[in-house]
């Protein structure tokens, strides 16, 4: 059977977001490596080049779905284009990267196609002919396994859950460009812009000392500053919860909607390790986590785990540092 799975590419300004290739990997898992079941769709305006590039990388058939109104992302326009395209025959699965674009339009697409919708999927389990999709619930402490009951299922793929498909030499897919009618809808995207909070200090830092809601109150930031002072060059990071509470500015936020960082050392203090946070530190070389909860998610990715109350551990750490080195290094 052909075209059972559609993957919607994520791209902007002629750049393909690598999460697209992660979604392709998931598609390949779903169809047991049978590339002819997969079709990659690139909605946009003049995106044939993008489609060619994706097809060239993956060897999978790719369609550039074009309309002027798709030049800049807008949920209604995107969905309208895809619904028109799928009207003939909707595929069994529509895979969309779980990004701020993907999770925005996926539920609308599901409504329009009368499809089920399962988001932030990080694993596929199959047994006796049924396919179950796994996503996190309750802060990731539990996983839910979900089975679709409809002919078409819209799925968003958690970034980082699948390895991106690497270049497939020797394979080639067909690239097709199709014009599609688009209903302009009642939203108009004016622009994408960078937020006023920039994270430059974080992006270039070798050591990041990062605070989570576990510090309990703003005053306890002083503990984090003391840790930061142990390192000759360090920057201050934090979880979103710390910014939401007004303890630090958003320029310090690490994670998917904050800064993506790749320091030599990431020192996480009182951070639970939500997927949106740890996706942002994938590039860190050494991760140290301090958390009073032995079941904290951060420990599943930390190189050194310290199960301690931070309000007691940090002063001890600083004391021992001074004993050993005399004073602060800066």
């Amino acid at each position: 059977m052909r075209n059972k799975i559609a993957v919607i590419a994520q791209h902007a300004d002629n750049r393909i977001d690598p999460v697209t290739y992660e979604a392709v990997s998931c598609a390949l898992e779903l169809c047991a490596g049978e590339t002819s079941c997969i079709q990659i769709i690139v909605p946009g305006d003049r995106v044939e080049k993008v489609a060619q590039e994706i097809s060239g990388e993956t060897g999978i058939d790719t369609i550039a779905l074009e309309n002027e109104l798709l030049k800049i992302y807008n949920a209604e326009a995107y969905t309208s284009a895809l619904v028109t395209f799928f009207r003939q025959r909707a595929p069994g699965y529509i895979l969309i990267p779980h990004t701020s674009v993907g999770y925005d339009f996926a539920p609308l697409l599901a409504i329009k196609l009368e499809a089920s919708c399962i988001t932030a999927v990080k694993q596929v389990n199959g047994s006796d002919g049924t396919t179950a999709f796994v996503h996190e619930v309750f802060d990731g402490r539990l996983y839910a396994e979900v089975v679709s009951k409809t002919k078409t299922t819209v799925i968003t793929i958690q970034p980082g859950a699948w390895e991106p498909l690497g270049r497939q030499p020797g394979k080639s897919g067909i690239v097709e460009t199709r014009n599609v009618t688009v209903n302009p809808g009642k939203t108009r995207t004016i622009a994408f812009r960078q937020s006023d909070y920039q994270g430059a200090a974080l992006a270039n830092s070798e050591v990041i000392v990062s605070a989570g809601r576990g510090i309990g109150k703003k005053e306890n930031l002083s503990l984090i500053y003391e840790v930061a002072k142990l390192f000759p060059r360090s920057a201050l990071g934090c979880s979103r919860a710390v910014c939401d509470a007004g303890w630090l500015e958003y320029s310090h936020q690490v994670g998917i909607t904050g800064s993506t960082v790749s320091p030599k050392l990431y020192f996480a203090i009182g951070i639970s390790g939500a997927v949106q946070h740890i996706t942002g530190i994938k590039g860190a070389q050494v991760i140290v986590a301090v958390n009073s909860d032995p079941a904290a998610r951060f420990f599943t990715i930390a190189d050194y785990c310290i199960v301690e109350d931070l309000t007691q551990f940090i002063p001890t750490l600083v004391e021992e540092f001074k004993k050993k080195y005399g004073s602060f290094s800066k």
Partner: peptide, 30 residues
Amino acid sequence: RETEVRLFSPGIKPKGTILQGTRREKAVQL
């Protein structure tokens, strides 16, 4: 349109080293 068939704990499998000992020993080790 979809049903949750199972809810399960992924289990916490620490990837790295869990520092052992007293608080002070952990600080020194770190």
